[in-house]
Design a protein around this nucleic acid. Structure first.
Lengths: 154, 154
DNA sequence: CTTGCACCTAAAGCGGCTTCAGGTTTTATC
DNA sequence: GATAAAACCTGAAGCCGCTTTAGGTGCAAG
């Protein structure tokens, strides 16, 4: 009964498809050490099994949650040690939650300003345009102190 | 009456400080063509006047609003032609507003999932940890379809 | 005249991949 | 068994929007 062997060992394309990412991304994760070096077949091509698929799914899922690669690295390290206390995983998630909430707050303020700008554009000439005007003159913003200052808006 | 000449022509440090950005950023904007090549003094140092300060302030302001550099380039081009119709400025701002709203929506869904995860972590061992568990198993998400799929969460 | 800051250029680094260039291996069809 | 297409391989460069680094030159104050 070896009819389903092809299902338990597979190439990088199948792995990537099952995890919902690109082939190059899998190689990248191997290179930066999120995935262990893959075993190879006679022709030097990577072979995977379901254990690696599980790990890759974890990685992609954590990335979808917006965790940084370094955070994912720590979370993976913890997932590899089920007997350890999970305080640190908790701390990472809480910190990330705080960051996400801060981003939402900044983007919401931004959305309000953009809405105001767009709503007030009468569709005439550039020199009457509210959009260009507001960008030229910070005084015209509701939150004149700045929308995020030096930092990137994310 | 030349006592305030120093106020109308100034160096890159003063320009950067007045616009609220870094000196290197000013040179970068010149390099990518958002700012015109600066005039130089005898010692090859850049000299600026209030016109450039206005342009730089516009750029920083638009960037603070989250407009991409390419969008800023277009907006600057329009600001340089006050007699033209402002339809395109309007379109750029509307598109940006849509993007910001989409980001907020995705981040909000993310925030909800993270809150759930964090709330359910009992603070025990890793193998009982809700955070690690959810990351291991996509099924446990409310929005099992994905938090943004392939795209970066911003 | 020396100290120390502001300025100069060119190039590399950041995150997190993606894309490209140029090759080898596997698979499907004839 | 030949051939063509698809999948795989590696290493390097590109993306965005700056920031940082390295190694210099200009300039003003004491």
């Amino acid at each position: 009964m070896s009819h389903n062997t092809a299902n338990t060992v597979f190439g990088i394309g199948t792995l990537a498809k099952r995890a919902g990412c690109q082939v190059q991304t899998v190689r990248y994760y191997e290179k930066i050490g999120l995935l262990p070096p893959a075993t190879r077949n006679a022709g030097n091509q990577r072979r995977y099994d379901s254990a690696t698929l599980g790990r890759l799914t974890f990685i992609r899922h954590a990335r979808d949650f917006g965790f940084s690669v370094e955070a994912v690295r720590e979370l993976l390290g913890m997932a590899d040690h089920p007997n350890m206390p999970c305080d640190h995983a908790d701390a990472i998630a809480k910190r990330h939650l705080d960051e996400v909430e801060a981003r939402i707050a900044r983007l919401s303020a931004l959305r309000d300003e953009l809405k105001r700008m767009v709503a007030q554009c009468a569709g005439g000439r550039v020199d009457e345009c509210r959009i260009v005007e507001v960008l030229s003159d910070h005084q015209q913003c509701l939150h004149a102190a700045g929308h995020g200052g030096q930092q990137t808006i994310r």
